[in-house]
Computed example of a mutant assay.
Amino acid sequence: MSAAQSYPGPHPVDDDLVRRLIAGQFPQWAGLAVERFPSGGTVNEVYRLGDRMSVRLPLREGGAGDVALEREWLPRLAPRLPAAVPEVLGAGEPAEGYPWPWSVYGWLAGENPEAGALSEPVALAGDLAGFVTAMRSVTLPGAPEAHRGGPLASLDASTRAAIEELRGIPQEGIDCDAVAAVWEDALRAPAWDGPPVWLHADLMPGNLLVRGGRLTSVIDFGCVGVGDPACDLFPAWNLLPPPAREVFREALCVDDATWERGRGRTLSQALIALPHYRTTNRAMAHNARHVIRAVLEEDQHDVAPNPAPH
């Protein structure tokens, strides 16, 4: 999920609209092939434009602000980061009945990693930690507040509502008492009291590109800004298996309180996503289920009693 937190129906977008927008605003590219790119994203539609470009159009008003955010910050962040990020090649404007700004980007090759099917999980954990470290080291002035970058307690009402909704969906098999307990633990963790740090703030598998198991690109910076460093710990539970998760944590030197907040944030996102997307977005629902399992398994490990002495 990205910055849009309400769920209105998407604005209709199709190949013909994209062709008209390109022809009207970027005639130099009007002869290039346009083809929808299948994605599990929920806020934007992506189309291939020829072999070397993509067109990204918000589907909802809540995603339109992301366009300006990326136009402003991507060129400034790109030289400071170890992985490739989208390059804005064209700034599209509303036209042809389409109501919001949109963008043309350079195409970034690669594939989305899939939890449980990583070929180089430990190496990928190191790559992700390197990216997060680089983001945290950015010192650009005038930073916006990251989406999800504020206090964990701001997610309390929506998280509890999602848990109650899941109680009414027994076929999902979620141990709602267990996830509620993990959420309570996260709320009790000390708040971040250091300076806010730069965050991508949406490090979902769908926003990562890998080749040969290694991170090559990070996309979708619509949530970017500064806030609690716990917000960029999502891959620990939404992607990495336990041994790689520990490599990720150690590389970032994450203290216990930040780890608890990060786990709580990742769990909250999954709990809110699952009831909404369980029948409409297979990728989002699948990842939400994975996160819930990973968090509960880690929590059980954390509280497991020591074996009895022989």
Score class of each variant (00 low, 15 high):
76 R>S: 09
66 D>L: 03
139 T>H: 12
115 A>H: 15
65 G>C: 02
63 G>R: 01
63 G>C: 01
99 P>N: 02
106 G>Y: 06
132 V>E: 11
67 V>R: 00
147 H>W: 04
97 G>R: 05
60 R>H: 04
126 G>K: 13
116 G>E: 15
63 G>Q: 01
120 E>Y: 01
72 E>P: 00
112 N>T: 15
126 G>C: 12
73 W>G: 00
148 R>H: 13
64 A>K: 02
124 L>G: 04
125 A>D: 15
94 P>H: 06
58 P>R: 03
81 L>N: 04
88 V>F: 07
96 E>T: 05
60 R>Q: 12
92 G>N: 09
135 M>G: 05
85 V>E: 12
81 L>P: 05
89 L>P: 05
67 V>G: 00
86 P>C: 12
93 E>Y: 03
133 T>C: 04
138 V>D: 13
82 P>T: 14
80 R>E: 13
132 V>Y: 08
125 A>P: 15
98 Y>P: 00
132 V>K: 07
118 L>A: 01
86 P>A: 14
143 A>E: 15
107 W>Q: 06
61 E>S: 01
73 W>N: 04
123 A>E: 14
135 M>V: 07
93 E>D: 10
85 V>P: 06
93 E>I: 07
60 R>G: 02
114 E>Q: 14
90 G>D: 12
64 A>W: 01
122 V>M: 12
108 L>T: 11
85 V>G: 07
62 G>S: 03
108 L>G: 09
147 H>Y: 06
120 E>P: 00
134 A>E: 07
144 P>Y: 08
145 E>P: 08
134 A>K: 02
114 E>K: 05
96 E>G: 01
135 M>A: 04
97 G>A: 08
71 R>T: 00
103 S>L: 15
60 R>I: 14
91 A>E: 15
120 E>A: 09
113 P>W: 09
145 E>M: 09
58 P>V: 12
85 V>R: 01
101 P>A: 10
116 G>Y: 13
118 L>P: 05
101 P>V: 10
127 D>S: 09
129 A>V: 15
88 V>K: 03
117 A>G: 03
65 G>I: 03
107 W>T: 14
121 P>Q: 11
99 P>V: 04
99 P>R: 00
98 Y>M: 01
107 W>A: 13
110 G>E: 13
81 L>S: 08
92 G>T: 11
58 P>W: 09
99 P>E: 03
94 P>Q: 06
142 G>V: 13
120 E>M: 00
131 F>N: 09
75 P>A: 06
97 G>W: 08
122 V>Y: 05
86 P>S: 10
115 A>L: 14
122 V>P: 05
63 G>I: 01
97 G>Y: 10
128 L>I: 14
78 A>K: 02
103 S>I: 14
139 T>M: 11
83 A>W: 10
130 G>D: 15
113 P>G: 08
142 G>I: 13
135 M>F: 11
103 S>D: 15
75 P>V: 07
108 L>M: 12
67 V>H: 00
108 L>H: 10
129 A>N: 08
64 A>T: 06
92 G>V: 13
114 E>Y: 08
142 G>Q: 08
120 E>H: 02
80 R>C: 05
74 L>P: 01
91 A>S: 07
102 W>R: 04
118 L>W: 04
122 V>R: 12
83 A>E: 12
66 D>K: 00
59 L>C: 01
60 R>N: 03
88 V>G: 03
139 T>P: 07
102 W>G: 04
95 A>M: 07
95 A>G: 11
134 A>Y: 06
106 G>F: 13
89 L>H: 12
142 G>W: 15
90 G>A: 14
63 G>H: 01
